[in-house]
Write a protein that binds this DNA or RNA. Structure first.
Length: 326
DNA sequence: AACGTTGCCAACCGCCGGGGG
DNA sequence: GCCCCCGGCGGTTGGCAACGT
C-alpha cells in the first residue's frame, strides 16, 4: 500500500509545459501568490496540472531572477567545495548560488562538472594502495560526501548502490596488477582548473598520500588486508578517512610543494578547501566532540572564505542547518 | 541520407519530515 | 501520541538535439 497520489493522475497533464501554460501559471502567481497551497493552485489557476508540477515549473523556470546558461568558474568552485563538504544537498548548494536552482545544479553536476573533474585529475602522487575493494575516485568522493549513506559506517561497495556505478572512463585505465605512483608534476603542470584543484584536495583528503593502492583488472582498488572485505562489501572507516593530524600533515606537504612549484595563489584557495576537508571528515565520521569542533571550523573557514569570494557567503543559520543533516 | 549513440535537461517519482488537527 | 496533508528534496527518466559512423 503506497501513499495516495497527490492529485488525480487521470485528469492532469504531464510532460513539457506549453508557453500558454507557463503564462497562465506565471500570471496567476504574480497576481495571487501561491497561497501556500500548491495542491489547490492548479485548479484555481485553471491548469490541468499536478500541484507539484506547478511548483517545480515555477521554482525551476518561471520564478523571477532565474539564471540560465553556463556556470562560471566561481560557481564551479562553490559547487565542488560544497559537494565535498555536504554531499548532494542540492537545495543547500543552490542557496549559495543566486539564480541557480537545485535542479540546475544537480543536472550540471551530473552531466558536466563530475566528468570535468574526473577527467582533469589523475590519482594523487605516491599512492600505493593494496588491491581489495573495487572502487573509483568518484565512488569514494560520493561515499565520503553522502552523509546519509556514510553514517554510521561508510561501506565501500561496488554493488550496494546504483550511485556507485560509474562509466568506465571514470576509472583510470590500468591493466594487470601494478603498483603505481604519480608525480605531482603531472598534475601541477597540467591545465588544472580551480575545480580540479578542489577535487585533488578531496582525493588527498580521502585517500591520504601515505597510503597504498593497486590496480587490478582495470579497476582501481584499495584498502587494507584486514579491514576491508570484498565478500561482504564492508570496509572499515579508516580506509578513506583519517585524522586531522594526518590531514594537517598532508596540507603541509602539499603546501610546501605548491610553493616550490610557484603555486602559492593556487594553493591559497587549496588551503581553505583542504581545511574544509578536515571539517568534513570529522563531521562525517567523528564523535560528537569532533562534530562540534567541525562546526566551529566550518564557521571560521567559511567566514574567511567569504572574504575572498563574495558569492560564498554562509550565515550561521545556514551552517547550523547544514550540520543538522549530519 | 539513414541510423545509432551520446549528452543534456526538463520533468516526474517516491520518500521524508514538519505542521496542524 | 497519532494520523494526514503538504512541501521539499534527491534520484531517475524520457525526449530531444547534437554528434558520429
Amino acid at each position: 500500500m503506497g501513499r495516495a497520489p497527490c492529485c488525480d493522475k487521470a485528469n492532469v497533464k504531464k510532460g513539457p509545459w506549453s508557453p500558454e501554460e507557463d503564462a497562465q501559471l506565471k500570471e496567476y502567481i504574480e497576481k495571487n501568490g501561491t497561497g501556500g497551497n500548491w495542491i489547490a493552485l492548479p485548479q484555481k489557476a485553471g491548469l490541468r496540472r499536478c500541484g507539484k508540477s506547478c511548483r517545480l515549473r515555477w521554482l525551476n523556470y518561471l520564478r523571477p531572477n532565474i539564471k540560465h546558461g553556463d556556470f562560471s568558474e566561481d560557481e564551479d568552485r562553490i559547487i565542488c567545495s560544497l559537494y565535498v563538504t555536504i554531499g548532494s544537498r542540492w537545495s543547500i548548494i543552490a542557496t549559495q548560488l543566486p539564480g541557480r536552482t537545485d535542479n540546475d545544479i544537480k543536472n550540471y553536476w551530473n552531466t558536466k562538472l563530475k566528468k570535468k573533474l574526473m577527467g582533469a585529475v589523475p590519482p594523487p602522487h605516491n599512492y600505493h594502495r593494496k588491491v581489495h575493494q573495487p572502487c573509483s575516485f568518484s565512488a569514494l568522493l560520493h561515499q565520503a560526501s553522502s552523509s546519509k549513506s556514510s553514517l554510521p559506517s561508510p561501506p565501500l561497495s561496488s554493488s550496494s548502490s546504483s550511485s556507485l556505478s560509474y562509466t568506465p572512463n571514470y576509472y583510470t585505465p590500468f591493466s594487470g596488477v601494478d603498483t603505481i605512483a604519480y608525480s605531482p608534476s603531472n598534475f601541477l603542470s597540467s591545465n588544472s582548473t580551480t575545480t580540479a584543484s578542489c577535487l585533488l584536495q578531496t582525493q588527498e583528503s580521502l585517500l591520504g598520500p601515505m597510503q597504498h593502492y593497486q590496480v587490478k583488472d582495470s579497476v582501481l582498488m584499495f584498502g587494507g588486508e584486514t579491514s576491508c572485505s570484498s565478500s561482504d562489501a564492508s570496509c572499515s572507516n579508516n580506509q578513506i578517512s583519517h585524522g586531522k593530524d594526518q590531514l594537517d600533515h598532508d596540507y603541509q606537504q602539499y603546501g610546501d610543494q605548491s610553493q616550490q612549484m610557484g603555486m602559492q595563489n593556487y594553493f591559497y584557495n587549496g588551503v581553505q578547501e583542504q581545511k574544509l576537508m578536515v571539517s568534513s571528515s570529522n563531521v562525517l565520521w567523528g564523535d560528537q566532540a569532533t562534530l562540534d569542533n567541525g562546526l566551529e571550523e566550518i564557521k571560521q573557514l567559511i567566514s574567511s572564505t567569504a572574504n575572498s569570494s563574495d558569492s560564498f557567503l554562509l550565515d550561521e543559520i545556514k551552517i547550523e542547518e547544514k550540520v543538522m543533516y549530519y
